[in-house]
């Protein structure tokens, strides 16, 4: 059966890899990006490569509400992927605008979107799948990105609860916690090779996770071990570390 798949932040490298894998299967793609100009090549690409139906919607977390977006959609999607994310200026305490943006894109807007979709799915009895891309950065705050980390922690906690709420309605919610990904977000940063996944690896892990009905997916297994260790470092030590 052809599914209608909504991808939020479709220009993200991970989302592009994911959209291609879904389109390869013949599914219908509904993409969102921040401008019509950004949508155009994404849509054209899926149509030429896979000869599938693809529609685009302009959505900017800072300008539009979840309801704005839902009103544009031609129906209720069967599958939703929230890939939008914003790393922001790492360690600056003097930039409230950027801080608000980090919280909005990674947390509040993402949550409000998921809420709206879940509500619509329950109402129309769609037994769909919701996938949220969070991050291992949410597992313990570090001085280099505690705003981003906090927003992702909130998002992960929200997804835990939503999974619980969706269960009785046959709706599955999956949390993705990638470690480092080689993407636009990390361009120019020195990343440790063995701990860094490609967007294609993340996309494949998401599809595999959905198939298996997993709750939480770490993309590279080593990251669940690393985070276990990091979570267990006593605070007296942790606060002195340069992470």
């Amino acid at each position: 059966m052809k599914k209608k798949i909504l991808v939020i932040g479709a220009g993200s490298d991970v989302a592009q890899a994911l959209s291609r894998l879904r389109a390869e299967r013949g599914h219908i793609l509904w993409l969102t990006a921040r401008s019509q100009e950004a949508l155009q090549p994404l849509l054209a690409d899926l149509k030429v490569r896979y000869q599938v139906e693809a529609l685009g919607f302009v959505y900017d977390a800072e300008l539009h509400s979840a309801e704005d977006l839902m009103a544009q959609l031609p129906g209720i999607p069967d599958e939703v992927h929230v890939a939008m994310g914003y790393l922001g200026n790492p360690d600056r305490l003097d930039d409230p605008k950027d801080a608000a943006r980090i919280l909005k894109v990674n947390f509040s807007a993402a949550v409000l979107l998921m809420n709206a979709v879940m509500h619509a799915m329950i109402e129309k009895q769609v037994k769909g799948v919701l996938v949220g891309i969070s991050s291992v950065a949410g597992e313990r705050g570090r001085k280099s990105n505690f705003l981003y980390g906090a927003a992702k922690a909130g998002f992960s906690t929200y997804l835990d609860g939503l999974r619980n709420a969706g269960f009785s309605h046959g709706i599955h919610v999956m949390t993705v916690k990638p470690g480092f990904i080689r993407s636009k977000m990390t361009a120019g940063l020195p990343l440790p090779g063995p701990l860094t996944a490609s967007p294609q690896q993340v996309a494949s892990a998401i599809i595999k996770g959905m198939k298996k009905g997993r709750g939480t997916v770490y993309v590279l297994p080593v990251w669940s071990l690393i985070m276990l260790l990091i979570r267990n470092i006593p605070d007296v030590v942790f606060k002195r570390l340069n992470l």
Binding site: L87, D91, A187, G188, L189
Partner: peptide
């Protein structure tokens, strides 16, 4: 993450 954006 958190390193200046100009690694060679």
């Amino acid at each position: 993450m958190g390193t200046p954006m100009s690694a060679l």
